[in-house]
Nucleic acid binder design. Structure first.
Length: 287
DNA sequence: AAGACGTGGAG
DNA sequence: TCTCCAAGTCT
């Protein structure tokens, strides 16, 4: 789940830390919410941390799933992860279709329809199902993703070195770089955020973010609904996948409501700190 | 079905 | 600085 929408190189150190601190699914299930958030801190898509926790609790209670259908019942595990696990762990003959695999197969068939539709997904699935090695489905799925990463890249694919170039329709048509066709464009909206800075010595006053939104469930400074008049903010630009944030911090303004907890910077960091706040503390150092 | 949801690296 | 993308899932 760490690797969902995350490069292997970006997730590796997080995976190692998780395994070192919480080596078994029972450890993961029994861990505190704050420990898991702390281990996840910096990875993004923070709801995944909760889903991982819930999934571990479910597995600790019911035992390990077997096969795609059962894996799909685990929170945080969708079609791709379920198929990857079922093929690798259980030897089930199913294609694991992540972004890499969709690229490979859409080129193989020179599929020109938008890849986002359920029709395209169904087509690619049935195509891929014909190719999955019946004896080594897990290794085969791994190999497809490795092929995508090494040769069948989004731009400038190395078709000359590709072991299946003879089979590839896009290669013959010269359209490899045009596949897969993506039509969905995510719109990036701009948003201003304002935060009070309650202080007690070395401690910051924090509140927990609502579940589901930005930085779901993490502790941050109290967000202000309106700009406090007469105070000069420290301003930081921060980009999310779907939003350009202009974040305003008011070091002179403590806010009007009592924070839920008071933490030092280190304690805060251990519970999970959004990168925008990491950058803020770097750019405007506090004691 | 389409939008919400982080972050870092590459070009 | 900007765009695109990365081992997607949930609602």
């Amino acid at each position: 789940m760490i690797l969902q929408q995350t490069r292997v190189e970006q997730g590796r150190s997080y995976w190692e830390r998780f395994l070192q601190e919480l080596p078994t699914v029972e450890d993961l299930a029994a861990a505190s919410d704050t420990q898991i958030k702390g281990l996840w801190s910096g990875l993004g898509y923070y709801r995944r941390a909760d889903l991982l926790h819930r999934g571990a609790k479910q597995i600790a209670r019911t035992g390990w799933p077997q096969g795609t259908k059962e894996w799909l019942e685990v929170p945080g595990i969708g079609p791709y992860t379920a198929a990857a696990l079922a093929s690798i762990v259980d030897g089930e003959v199913v294609p694991a279709l992540d972004g890499n695999a969709f690229r490979v197969y859409s080129r193989l068939a020179d599929w020109s329809e938008p890849i986002e539709t359920s029709r395209s997904k169904a087509f690619i699935y049935s195509l891929a199902l014909n190719f999955v090695h019946p004896k080594r489905p897990g290794d085969f799925n791994q190999a497809v993703m490795d092929l995508a990463q090494a040769l069948c890249t989004p731009k400038k694919p190395k078709c000359n070195e590709c072991p299946v170039q003879e089979l590839c329709a896009a290669r013959s048509a010269g359209s490899a770089e045009l596949r897969p066709v993506k039509t969905r464009t995510l719109k990036v909206t701009e948003q201003d955020l304002h935060f009070a800075v309650p202080r007690r010595g070395h401690q910051f006053g924090l509140v927990q973010r609502p579940l589901g939104g930005i930085w779901s469930g993490l502790y941050t400074l109290p967000e202000l609904a309106t700009v406090p008049p007469g105070f000069t903010p420290q301003v930081l630009d921060h980009r999310l996948s779907h939003r350009k944030l202009r974040v305003h911090f008011y070091p002179e303004f403590e806010g009007s409501s009592e924070p839920e907890i008071w933490l030092t910077r280190e304690e805060w960091s251990k519970r999970g700190m959004p990168q925008a706040f990491v950058h803020w503390l770097t750019e405007f150092p506090y004691i």
